[in-house]
Design a protein around this nucleic acid. Structure first.
Length: 300
DNA sequence: AAAGGATGCAACCGCACCCAT
DNA sequence: TATGGGTGCGGTTGCATCCTT
């Protein structure tokens, strides 16, 4: 046993952070030979890494079309929407966000979205939280998308982060497809979305139909122009909501006026089925979100 | 300024699936 | 059909950085 070839090989395997030399070696090898067959690639390239490690490093970090930087409001909206539809199917969700990896989306969900859930003391997988996102967070994201759309069209030179037109159109297409698609909810009896339930297109429990989204857009003066490049975020804007969008992290928050508008609107009232006696009221939720945002801004 | 805690992200691990043999 | 290698996915961990006190 001790000192066997296998054991020595195991000990030779490097783990942990990749060095620049390793990255260069992997990039060079894949440039010459292409990706795939990761185990043999790992051996042939001279890297003392497992095939899995090489694959992960390439797909999550080194691949040329990986988009760096923080998620845009549009991308965040897509993530929230698709997660409510598919659950923790990160790779499937990543397919709709060009340049973003499943790992990145998963991290976003765990660090940002679940953080909000913790603040609200709501299970992030619960229907209640999904509804909270839909009522308070997603409309806000839509608004941000619209604002950025205006910004990018009016002052494109202010952008330091932009995507190619084709990529942006692809992103917009995906975004609009989601926007135009019914979004079934997980079964109310389950605290965690089950794929068989949430992927059922015939589900009758949708709380936010395309119609309601259009109502939402109308009520928020939101118009999504599919031909407009809206991937443009480095412009800081300060408005009455004490909000800013830049290429740093973007969290949601709501001021009291927003909450009045959202909380008293009946646009979703007929569609959102709220478990009686089991909810914070809208004002509480609103204040909680608002406070989170406040904390966020002041902590910067 | 320093120490401890919190956060975000890259990387690892285990499992499941697919496919060739 | 059984088996083993290759691959992909989701959950988890470790660590660097940031923040708070």
């Amino acid at each position: 046993m001790g000192g066997s070839c296998n054991e020595r090989n195991f000990n030779d395997i490097r783990r942990g952070p990749w060095t620049l030399e390793e990255d260069n070696l992997l990039i060079h090898y894949i440039t010459c030979h292409g990706e795939g067959r990761w185990n043999s690639l790992a051996k042939s390239s001279g890297l003392k890494r497992t095939g899995k490690s090489c694959r992960l490093r390439w797909l999550n970090y080194l691949k040329p079309d990986i988009k760096r930087g923080n998620l845009t409001p549009q991308e965040q909206f897509l993530i929230l929407e698709l997660h409510s539809k598919w659950g923790n199917r990160w790779s499937k969700i990543a397919c709709h966000l060009p340049g973003r990896t499943d790992n990145e989306i998963k991290n976003y969900w765990r660090t940002r979205v679940q953080k909000q859930a913790r603040h609200l003391k709501i299970d992030a997988n619960s229907k209640r939280f999904v509804e909270t996102l839909r009522r308070f967070w997603m409309p806000r994201l839509l608004e941000k998308v619209k604002q950025n759309s205006s910004l990018s069209s009016s002052s494109p030179s202010s952008s330091t982060y932009s995507t190619s037109t084709s990529e942006t159109n692809q992103n917009n297409l995906s975004f609009l497809q989601v926007e135009q698609t019914l979004m079934p909810l997980p079964s109310s009896s389950s605290s965690s979305p089950q794929p068989s339930e949430i992927e059922n297109p015939n589900s009758s429990s949708s709380i936010l139909s395309s119609d309601s989204i259009s109502k939402l857009s109308e009520s928020s003066n939101i118009y999504i122009n599919p031909n407009r490049d809206i991937a443009c975020y480095n412009s800081s804007l300060q408005n009455n909501d004490c909000y800013h969008v830049d290429n740093h992290n973007f969290d949601m928050g709501f001021n009291h006026l927003d909450m009045q508008a959202i909380g008293t609107s009946d646009m979703l009232a007929s569609e959102v089925q709220v478990a009686e006696g089991d909810w914070m009221n809208d004002a509480d939720l609103a204040n909680t979100f608002w406070n989170i945002d406040e904390l966020w801004h002041f902590s910067k």
